[in-house]
């Protein structure tokens, strides 16, 4: 009888393990381009990561070792001290139509496009049946946990044009790094793709040492028509492990640490 008992136990355990494998297989995420074990497509160009002069703070006449990111001599924009709580009369999330005269460091790579890279991440990270907010949260979490900070300056003399945003976003998603402008641009592209039109905000954030520092983040328009702030880099680097304090927030919730010209952007109420 003991042998029968042991046999049944062993069989049950085997069945249990088999069940685990089947279950695990069922939840295995689809292949990702980010951790593939096979070599990827050959890129045709390499990204420029050479730093260049920050247009707002660097007084030097930097000559970058790579020419793809030209410095700007544009003086820093001085945002208002506090955002307006009044609704903007004509908010627009449409970016400037003017093309950037200074191409950024976006690489070009074979059949890889910004759209395909963004679609791959959304497919991998976002819950298929999730709400828009859940999907935005998923890509935000992916960005916070994956992207690294890299000081690469950007010429913002023409603002965040479509072309510039796409270039910065592509640089970021293919190199997994970038400055605030890069990460904000990628967040905008993710949000746009998820049906939440976004605009990159040019403003400042309050560092812990009390200084206001030029900075970029996004405002998105959700499907209910409301606008909300999202700041990926600040969420990762300045919230002591609580990045969601910078996700889908109102003006009121943001103004303690951020400032921007409220006349230029939709009100997040």
């Amino acid at each position: 009888m003991k042998r029968v008992f042991a046999l049944i136990l062993a069989a049950a355990l085997l069945l249990g393990c088999a069940g685990c494998e089947s279950f695990g297989g069922a939840i295995t995420p689809p292949p990702s381009p980010w951790n593939s074990t096979t070599p990827t497509e050959t890129p045709s160009e390499t990204p420029s990561t050479a730093p260049s002069e920050d247009p707002s703070t660097a007084p030097s006449t930097d000559v970058s070792t790579e020419p793809s990111e030209a410095p700007s001599d544009e003086p820093s924009e001085e945002p208002s001290a506090a955002p307006s709580t009044e609704p903007s009369t004509a908010p627009s999330v449409a970016p400037s139509a003017a093309p950037s005269t200074e191409p950024s460091s976006a690489p070009v790579s074979g059949d890889s496009t910004l759209e395909t890279e963004v679609a791959a991440i959304i497919a991998k990270e976002c819950p298929a049946n999730g709400t828009q907010a859940e999907k935005i949260t998923a890509v935000f979490d992916w960005m916070v946990s994956t992207l690294k900070y890299k000081y690469v300056t950007v010429d913002l003399s023409n603002g965040y044009t479509d072309e510039l945003v796409d270039e910065l976003a592509y640089y970021t998603i293919t190199t997994l790094r970038g400055a605030c402008e890069h990460q904000a641009s990628l967040m905008k592209v993710f949000a746009d793709t998820l049906g939440a039109p976004a605009v990159v905000v040019k403003g400042d954030f309050l560092a812990e040492d009390g200084t206001w520092t030029e900075h970029g983040w996004v405002i998105v328009q959700l499907e209910d028509g409301s606008y909300r702030h999202i700041d990926v880099l600040f969420g990762r680097n300045h919230t002591h492990g609580k990045p969601h304090t910078m996700l889908l927030k109102t003006d009121e919730e943001f103004k303690a640490t951020h400032r921007w010209n409220a006349d230029d952007y939709p009100a997040c109420e």
């Binding site: 050479a50 730093p51 260049s52 002069e53 920050d54 707002s56 703070t57 660097a58 030097s60 930097d62 000559v63 970058s64 070792t65 410095p71 900070y149 000081y151 300056t153 400055a179 605030c180 954030f205 560092a207 812990e208 040492d209 200084t211 520092t213 030029e214 900075h215 970029g216 880099l233 600040f234 680097n237």
Partner: peptide, 19 residues
Amino acid sequence: YVYSEAMSCAYDGMDKVYG
């Protein structure tokens, strides 16, 4: 060297590069 700097938006202090 070619020098560039900016207030860091990731850390307190300056990002500096010596090329």
